[in-house]
Amino acid sequence: MTKLDLPNYKDQSPEVKARFDDLKQRDVILDVKHLGKIFDSAKGPVTALEDINFQVHRREFVTVIGPSGCGKSTLIRTLAGLESATSGEVLLEGAAVSGPGPDRGMVFQGYTLFPWLTVKKNVMFGLRNQGVSAVEAESEALEWINLVGLEKFAEVYPDQLSGGMKQRVAIARALAAKPRILLMDEPFGALDAQTRSKMQAYLLEIWRHIDITILFITHDLDEAIYLADRILVLDAHPGRVSELIEVPVSRPRAPEQLLRPEFLAARQRLDELIHPPGQGDEEVGKLNMLRFANVGEEVQPQN
């Protein structure tokens, strides 16, 4: 693959640099220390995560990316408390977490709205669990539904919504419970490309307007860059942090930036990390050789 003549992805414009300086000053919301996860399988223990270390600052947007099987989902499920860590610890604003809790909201890839509740009741769910009165929960829920632009659908059941709308409700539902951090596990993975880019814009708008920290898993390189302040790149087998990239693209983001040199520089770096040179190409090369070997030649019958 020929490299484009791009700036180094580590070069930051003064504006971007100032923003990162500010970010690093902020409180640490999430502190992951030496996190490890080993699954027991029929073939013996499998290390899914090994010695994961990183911090997320307040109102930061971090995306997590890596080859399939790198343990992205295990990582986010462990942070949410849905899986327990084998070693290390997770601190949320300094306090160790064990088990799931409303302080870490989660948006899943699959649709997890409660089908028996209307959009409004879905969004009220977290508040009601925390003992907020029905009246208060309802007015708060309606505010969140307004925020994601679904006020006309408040009384509708989820199965009447499109995929994108369902995920908007899921975001509203998670945010309404007032989490300290929002964990998103490939939330737009099941959506078509057009809806996905709209959802990305929505999410950035929401994030800009409210005080929320986001950790977002994706397997889409452009999505990872477009949304993030920093990108946590994971290696596979075992899942380890390969690099934490500071995205050199200014905010607020717009789709035009996908073609800017600094965006492409980050894109190229991600490509290198996720598809190490040689590895994938070799296999494709072999396949092509096989194809050409058969052209114009008699294939020898196998013995």
């Binding site: 949410a80 408390g81 849905l82 799931p100 809790g101 409303p102 870490r104 909201g105 989660m106 899943f108 699959g110 997890t112 409660f114 769910f125 977290g126 669990n129 925390q130 899921a170 539902r173 998670a174 419970a177 964990l183």
Partner: peptide, 18 residues
Amino acid sequence: LDIALLEAALTLGANRRQ
């Protein structure tokens, strides 16, 4: 019943009874 619904409820602070 889809276990993801239970997991979603857990991350929304539901206790065992809820």
